[in-house]
């Protein structure tokens, strides 16, 4: 009997339509797009398209990517990925289930002069958040501490390279030391967390000592074991 595989994954080179943007003015873009598409509306139906932001010359941050994606969809196009956007754009793209493609033109970042300068050790800045973190939201401090001045709801997720401090009630998931820093700690005023984790070692709410629920606590690793202690 011949074994016939159910599926296979393969890289493939495809020809895709790319929308190159040179300007970040949302209104100008909308206008120009309307003009282009009105010339051959049928041509653009269900066509996959990549949004390329590499050539945007002025302030990239002004560009409203989600609006643009919605606009393309209303014209019948199917945006599939984004290339060359900033971090916010990439985040919006992920939220809208779009892929993120690598920059093709810019040189590898390691080679630039600026990164060489940045290689001098510096103290990473803490990320400070004032607003409540709601269910379904995720906040990441990729470098340094994460400090949250209000509550973190059930179903929300906060992650930090180093320590996490929460000055409201902590109800969601808190993961400190996500890059393996086993000296990282989690501090909170009221512990109701769904899950606590330091450098990959975690505990779920059910396993927390009962007398610590609702208390202000400190969570840290001791001999590779997660420890929760009253403050």
């Amino acid at each position: 009997m011949k074994y016939k595989p159910v599926l296979e994954l393969k890289g493939s080179l495809l020809t895709l339509m790319v929308l190159n943007l040179f300007n970040s003015d949302n209104e100008l873009i909308a206008k120009a797009l309307a003009e282009k598409i009105s010339k051959a509306p049928d041509f653009f139906q269900q066509v996959p398209i990549v949004i390329d932001l590499q050539a945007v010359e002025d302030n990239q941050a002004v560009l409203d990517l989600s609006e643009l994606v919605k606009l393309l969809r209303t014209y019948g196009l199917t945006p599939v990925a984004v290339r060359g956007g900033n971090i916010e754009h990439n985040e919006i793209a992920l939220n809208m289930n779009l892929g993120i493609l690598n920059n093709i033109k810019s040189p590898a970042p390691q080679l630039t002069l600026e990164t060489k300068v940045a290689a001098v050790p510096e103290i990473p800045a803490a990320k400070i958040i004032r607003d409540p973190i709601r269910s379904g939201q995720q906040v990441i401090a990729e470098k340094g501490d994460l400090i949250i001045l209000s509550a973190v709801s059930h179903g929300a997720e906060i992650l930090a390279d180093r320590h996490i401090h929460v000055y409201g009630a902590l109800r969601g998931r808190a993961l400190a030391g996500i890059n393996g820093d086993n000296k990282a700690q989690i501090f909170c005023q009221q512990l109701y967390a769904d899950l606590l984790s330091v450098a990959g070692k975690y505990q779920v709410n059910e396993d927390f000592p009962e007398d610590l629920i609702g208390k202000s606590t400190q969570t840290y690793l001791e001999q590779d074991k997660l420890n929760i202690k009253k403050l």
Binding site: S66, D131, I133, R134, S135, G136, Q137, S153, H154, G155, A156
Partner: peptide
């Protein structure tokens, strides 16, 4: 309450 929390998050982002 959980779903409302999610919606409030969306009101402030989407």
């Amino acid at each position: 309450v959980r779903d409302s929390d999610r919606i409030i998050g969306m009101l402030s982002s989407k």
